[in-house]
Design a protein around this nucleic acid. Sequence first.
DNA 1: CAGTATCCTCGAGGATACTG
DNA 2: CAGTATCCTCGAGGATACTG
Lengths: 146, 146
Amino acid sequence: MQRANDSISAALAVIGDRWSLLVLRGVFRGLHRFGELRDDLGIASNLLTTRLNRLVEQGVLEKVQYQDRPVRFEYRLTDAGRDLSPVLVSLMQWGDAHQMSGNAPTTLVHATCGAPIENVTRCTQCREDVDATAIRNTNDHQLETT
Amino acid sequence: MQRANDSISAALAVIGDRWSLLVLRGVFRGLHRFGELRDDLGIASNLLTTRLNRLVEQGVLEKVQYQDRPVRFEYRLTDAGRDLSPVLVSLMQWGDAHQMSGNAPTTLVHATCGAPIENVTRCTQCREDVDATAIRNTNDHQLETT
DNA sequence: CAGTATCCTCGAGGATACTG
DNA sequence: CAGTATCCTCGAGGATACTG
């Protein structure tokens, strides 16, 4: 993409194509093997190969051998991959609210409580939830000009 | 896309192309006019036209007239558009952490505190932050089969 | 200034056959 | 089963000129 001096474009350069987030969604849901992902997504196998390799290169997924004759690998989230969870959750939350008119086909719940989870933006200082209108953008220029 | 019976694909069908999220990022940052967005993004004008029209159709942006001779419109976020804020914030947070090796080029702050904000996933019941590994997926089948 | 109209390119995505 | 190899299509994206 252009202007990679921005974290959003940088993130989109990694997962901003038509399949990557869907592949990751599958892995988050417990699909780790090539065939499982291919069948679930209905993606052409050659494409799945390139997507997986790319995500591995980018450090989002890693190949873990699960069998040795023949040698077979499965795909697991790295820490960086797991950190993409909020992206998927926020996307799903938005889709639920605005594309499914509130009828969520699936709900994400807290493993220990069983209660639904939500994605929010919060202030690190006052700990209050921050509305989109209360967000400001600060250039960290000082760091460079000092 | 395929399988639109999923909120993530549904969301991606609206903003999952190469430009939409970047356009929205611009609007969030205060760029509301055609020329501002075009210059900031370096996007071809015909493409910007189709992206903006599409986002308006999808109910994410709305045209607001700001001048009448000649008639000129600017683009504003609707409520649905504003609800995409967590997607942008989580994407930026991930880009900062994993693509900029922690050196955020820009920081989002809370308007009232001035302190940095963060995007988290939280349990609606116990109010604790929920780690990606503590998220479970529940099919809401009961609703349909009843 | 905020687009619209045209035309073109290129590569992501897809279908299909094949292999250790 | 987990890919690789080939070939093809089509449309998103882009460049450029034009207009009220």
